[in-house]
């Protein structure tokens, strides 16, 4: 039983990271209506920024804030030069796929160019120690990940529902033409959406790096898990990203442990989940019905 619980704890810890990445994906989906295939690489890139600052002797938490700011700027820049000129993403999905994939390649290459191909070491934000609760050992890092996730999700919920910027973002996502007619500066709102998504992605990377090693490819699998999370939760639902992340995290930890067919494919349960949800409940658990269009 304890073995099982320990696997579940691992799953929750991973799930928190998937959910963080998912939050970024949801923010972009909500503001611009597109699936950002470069989100993982954005997150990897800004984690390297964190590492650079941290490596220069700055405390890790401060370095993370620096990395988030850096990611924010990179996100804004990419949106302005590459994504925004494309126009409505739902009019030409192929162009969107190609451009976000191009950004994927460019960010990955740029990171290799700047930081090399040897993995870097980033300390876990909450240290190496662990507590034992009811016979189950839990690393503080995992508890920290869940707490940070809850904080981020709460922050975004408040942002969307309680602030003027959030109102504008919801308006733009639902009907950008009308939002513009109401005086919302649509291009600036879209740009901020990308910036915010990149900033929150930094945190996902900071929790992934100590586990997998800070390398240029570390977020590629995580991205698929993040997509699985928001597919399950609903592409436009923040709460959905959190719940979906947890479910995906636990499933992909537990299933390979007990089903030998999936032994070396933790991704398989996530894949089956994506497929099943899109087929039978495309709006996910918490998404709005509107997502079904396209």
């Amino acid at each position: 039983m304890n073995d099982f619980l320990e696997v579940v704890v691992v799953g929750i810890g991973n799930g928190a990271v998937y959910a963080m990445l998912g939050l970024g994906l949801v923010v972009i989906y909500r503001s611009t209506g597109l699936l950002n295939f470069a989100q993982g690489e954005l997150s990897m890139f800004s984690t390297f920024i964190v590492w650079t600052i941290w490596n220069a002797g700055v405390p890790l938490w401060l370095a993370i804030l620096g990395g988030m700011a850096g990611g924010f700027l990179v996100g804004i820049l990419l949106h302005q030069v590459a994504v925004s000129p494309l126009g409505d993403p739902h009019e030409k999905p192929l162009a969107v796929v190609i451009v976000t994939i191009a950004l994927f390649l460019a960010l990955n290459g740029a990171a290799q160019l700047i930081w090399g191909t040897v993995d870097k070491r980033l300390d876990p934000l909450f240290g190496q120690s662990q507590v034992t609760i009811g016979g189950v050992a839990i690393q503080w890092q995992k508890i920290g990940a869940v707490l940070v996730l809850v904080a981020l999700a709460t922050g975004f919920v408040l942002l969307f529902n309680r602030t003027k910027l959030g109102l504008a973002m919801r308006a733009v996502a639902s009907n950008s033409e009308s939002a513009g007619l109401c005086g919302v500066p649509v291009p600036r709102i879209l740009m901020l959406g990308w910036g915010l998504a990149a900033a929150v992605g930094t945190v996902a990377g900071v929790f992934t790096a100590p586990q997998l090693g800070l390398g240029t490819n570390m977020m590629q699998l995580t991205l698929i898990f993040g997509f699985a999370a928001i597919t399950l939760g609903g592409f436009d639902s923040l709460i959905g990203a959190v719940v979906g992340g947890m479910v995906v995290g636990i499933l992909s930890a537990v299933v390979p442990q007990y089903v030998s067919t999936f032994e070396r494919m933790p991704l398989a349960p996530a894949f089956i989940l994506i497929l099943a949800v899109l087929l039978f409940r495309p709006q996910g658990l918490f998404g709005s019905k509107e997502v079904q269009r396209v």
């Binding site: 003027k164 005086g183 509107e290």
Partner: peptide
């Protein structure tokens, strides 16, 4: 200059109050 477009352009996913608030965005 405010513009009520053809088809009214209400933002369907927002509540009535939020629609009005967006109208006063500036």
């Amino acid at each position: 200059v405010a513009h009520v477009p053809q088809g009214r352009g209400t933002i369907s996913a927002l509540s009535v109050e939020d629609n009005l608030r967006v109208g006063g965005y500036q």
